[in-house]
Write a protein that binds this DNA or RNA. Structure first.
Lengths: 202, 202
DNA sequence: GTCTATATTGTGATAGAC
DNA sequence: GTCTATCACAATATAGAC
């Protein structure tokens, strides 16, 4: 098969995503990635040369995956309420599929801020534009006079944190029943936007 | 000096707190803890036998440190608004002194849920009581008909997440000026309670 | 109790056969 | 491209002198 090489390379990347995103750079083991990919350890080096380079490929992917949702928030020209509803709905949807990605990014940025923040910019992140959107909503009188930074961070907090805290909260409130917790998270796609809108509307 | 032994044991624990809480179990190095404590590596084993046991001592401390604030929330019999204001103010205050502790707990619980959750219960955590308090506030008509679990998790999200995301947000919004970010966090002691109260009041 | 030296294991990386 | 075997070094842990 002429695409056999591509297949292996991709299986390695998929395995690396799973292990790195769940355990972080320090906690991940090359052996575990190889097992997950169903291949030998040395093939990892054949394709990616080092643990560090493989990690960076995963990190770039993780950042890329979570940018589109945020970018959509700033480009659309719909009213504030609707913007929040759409963003939260879509963002929690992505999170249900990839629960660990945002915390992985945050955790690893803390470990090596200089280098990893560059990967963040490389990929086209323009934070000032997002803030500007909220500022305009405030000036248009759609919402209260609240720091646009607060609205953005509060929104991200309410979306992301419940996923980060899942292992703990699930035990505390759901008798460790994953299905029950997932349904509660699903339900937040509707309750969180209303929570935010009530908090900031005039 | 008759308390010399106690001193060393305590200096080790302090050093271990600093390193483990910032880097996690997988990222921490016994050598770094020894350096931080200004002593030799083997003394760590003399006092705590293994990395695992030293880690567990730190984890127990971290959980204990963040329980009192949460417990206060459920014992006081003041009105809902005032309860939220006091809790958020105190909680962000503790976080300003210990920015990494909650994420440390969340991250490590995920790594080893069975064992570490026990440390959580050992220390007297009673989550059902907190939920009950919010349910009563709702029944008394103080607030909207919102899941008490949502109120608790939303409150924790708004307090904790901005600290977890600090290395990222500081770069995105504050040109990496730590002082500016700290002042913004300080300011949230007032804005976050109002955000929550507006969101849930009738 | 504290140190130096050393054992032991884990882990990323390379060499070389096929 | 893929495997087995092995290296080199890092990290936890222990032995033993003082």
């Amino acid at each position: 098969m002429s695409y056999r090489e591509k297949d292996t390379e991709n299986e390695i990347l998929e395995a690396a995503k799973k292990v790195f995103i769940e355990k972080g750079m320090a906690g991940a083991r090359m052996q575990e990635i190889a097992d997950e990919a169903g291949i030998n350890k040395s093939l990892l080096h054949y394709y990616y040369r080092s643990k560090d380079k493989l990690f960076l490929a995963v990190f770039r992917f993780a950042v890329l995956q979570f940018l589109p949702g945020i970018q959509e928030m700033l480009t659309s020209n719909i009213p504030f309420d609707e913007k929040i509803r759409r963003f939260v709905y879509r963002y929690i949807d992505i999170l249900l599929e990839n629960p660990f990605v945002p915390m992985f990014i945050i955790q690893e940025i803390q470990r090596d801020p200089e280098r990893l923040f560059n990967a963040f910019l490389e990929v086209g992140m323009r934070p000032a534009q997002i803030i500007q959107q909220f500022r305009e909503a405030s000036e248009k009188g759609e919402i209260k006079d609240i720091n646009p930074e607060d609205i953005l961070v509060n929104t991200l907090s309410l979306c992301i944190f419940p996923f980060a805290a899942q292992p703990l909260m699930q035990r505390l409130f759901c008798e460790n029943d994953e299905q029950v917790y997932k349904e509660w998270l699903e339900n937040r796609k509707k309750t969180v936007p209303e929570f935010i809108i009530n908090a900031v509307k005039k």
